[in-house]
């Protein structure tokens, strides 16, 4: 498994974590009432370090610096994946816009928090599609990435 594949698996992991964060925040599983705002921010930063930064550090440490890590085939795969993911993310934004337009009407307004949520979902879709398309093109990481 090369670095691009590892990065794709990390993308899936990251997408899952972002969905988990959204679920926790929306369902209110963790009750932050009574906690000072700086404390909540520090808590989230700590979670980000544990779940996002540490895996990235681990990925970088596992790199074999003497070998070629990214060649023309990897670039082709990444390019195709970015195109597919961009189209998916853009499609999600367009669908959100059309749904809002037809349900609420052209003169309606939405909260900034809802707009943030739409962008958040589009970003998760972008990362998930990017990772999945990379893995599909490599063959899901069979022996040495080839089946």
């Amino acid at each position: 498994m090369n670095m691009t594949q590892k990065g794709a698996w990390f993308g899936i992991y990251l997408s899952a974590m972002l969905v988990a964060v959204a679920v926790v925040d929306l369902t209110g599983i963790l009750d932050y009432k009574g906690f000072p705002t700086p404390g909540i921010i520090v808590w989230h930063m700590l979670l980000a370090v544990v779940f996002f930064v540490l895996p990235i550090v681990w990925l970088n440490r596992s790199r074999k610096k003497s070998k070629v890590e990214l060649d023309e085939r990897d670039r082709v795969i990444i390019k195709r994946s970015v195109i597919a993911a961009s189209v998916s993310g853009f499609t999600i934004l367009c669908i959100s816009y059309l749904v809002a337009l037809f349900l609420l009407g052209a003169e309606a307004s939405i909260k900034i928090s809802l707009l943030s949520a739409i962008i958040y979902v589009a970003f998760i879709f972008f990362m998930l599609i990017l990772s999945l398309v990379v893995l599909v093109q490599y063959g899901w990481g069979g022996k040495d990435g080839e089946k």
């Binding site: 090369n2 070998k67 070629v68 060649d71 023309e72 085939r73 490599y138 040495d144 990435g145 080839e146």
Partner: peptide
Amino acid sequence: LANKTGVTRQTIIAIEAGKYAPSLPL
């Protein structure tokens, strides 16, 4: 062969298997 041509071993595997058409420089 990968080291001599500056690509990864996976790419050589893919070329040999006919799964990837290399660029002209490669």
